[in-house]
């Protein structure tokens, strides 16, 4: 959304022209008002951003002298099995959870987009887990899936579906499934609202016109609704992918990176490198690599969006 174009040369209030010193004072005022934000963002974003590049060229222990090593950290990263596995796992996680989130969000949106009585209630109910923090949700779910003290296993047992409460966190796949279940529970309400708002912005006349032309319900959906939803879908996709690539809280709290370090994500490994192994320079290099991956993925996504919008 582009800012409204302002007339830069002469400003008019009412029918009077104004002097340039008045304009200059207003400029200063304008700058003054954005100064606090600029200072904060400069200090706590741009400076650390620049530092990340610089630090990545050093062997930088948290306590002690640093040593310039050039691009050595990057070379090390590309051969580091722990980091590579973390990136691999993060991608697997993202690839698995993204379609799940979109499908579930879509299904929910279809359910609640109408105007039936009670639809507002259900919208709210499905959205309820969204404002809870990821950490809180993780603490909740880590308890839910405990094999002896947790209620979910007990419920399955009582329903006769299992003999013993399963050890969900003991295997990589099942531990991942637990995290995916939690994240789906927590965020599909948000996808639902976004998709629903997208659906509402499609003029019903288009769908009706298609029906009048003889299209079946299914054809209307695939040929009219879905293509018009592409921008919204793309949006949901971008949000969900970015969030998944940066996942940390849920893995730290629910799986602890286990079993046996198999569910460690990229951010988790960067945290571990910097603050458990105390290697800041190497962590900075890993952070840069992460940013590169993020940028690439965003770029690819935006390309796909543009192409789909043109179609």
């Amino acid at each position: 959304m582009a800012p409204a174009r302002e007339v830069a040369t002469r400003e008019r209030i009412g029918s009077q022209s104004v002097s340039s010193s008045w304009r200059w004072r207003r400029s200063v005022e304008g700058i003054l008002y954005v100064l606090p934000a600029t200072v904060l963002i400069g200090l706590f974003f741009f400076i650390p951003l620049g530092m990340t590049f610089w630090m990545s060229l050093y062997d930088w222990p948290i306590l002690g002298a640093r040593r310039f090593t050039g691009l050595a950290n990057y070379g090390r990263a590309l051969g580091d099995p722990n980091f590579l596995h973390a990136v691999y796992f993060t991608c697997v996680y993202t690839l698995v959870i993204t379609p799940i989130l979109i499908v579930v969000g879509f299904a929910l949106a279809m359910l609640v987009k109408g105007h039936r009585r009670g639809v507002g209630l259900f919208r709210t109910l499905y959205f309820l887990p969204v404002p809870i923090g990821f950490a809180s949700a993780s603490y909740l779910w880590v308890w839910l899936v405990q094999p002896d003290a947790g209620p979910l296993g007990r419920i399955l047992q009582l329903l006769g579906l299992v003999q013993q409460p399963p050890q969900w966190l003991a295997g990589t796949t099942s531990a991942l499934a637990v995290v995916i279940a939690m994240v789906t529970w927590k965020t599909s309400g948000m996808q639902m609202i976004l998709l629903m708002s997208g659906m509402h912005s499609i003029p019903t006349e288009l769908e009706e016109a298609a029906r009048v032309d003889g299209a079946s319900g299914r054809q209307v959906f695939w040929l009219v609704t879905l293509p018009l939803l592409r921008p919204t879908l793309a949006l949901v996709l971008v949000f969900s992918v970015a969030g998944s690539l940066l996942a940390f809280d849920q893995f730290y709290i629910i799986t602890g990176g286990g079993p046996s370090n198999s569910t460690i994500t990229a951010v988790y490994w960067i945290y571990h490198t910097a603050f458990i192994n105390f290697q800041l320079g190497y962590a900075a290099a890993l952070s840069i690599l992460l940013m590169v991956v993020l940028a690439l993925v965003s770029f690819v996504q935006l390309r796909l969006i543009h192409r789909s919008v043109e179609l």
Binding site: P147, D148, Q167, L169, A170, G256, P259
Partner: peptide
Amino acid sequence: KLAQTDQGTN
């Protein structure tokens, strides 16, 4: 089996 995932509390 609980031994595999126990962080010290079970």
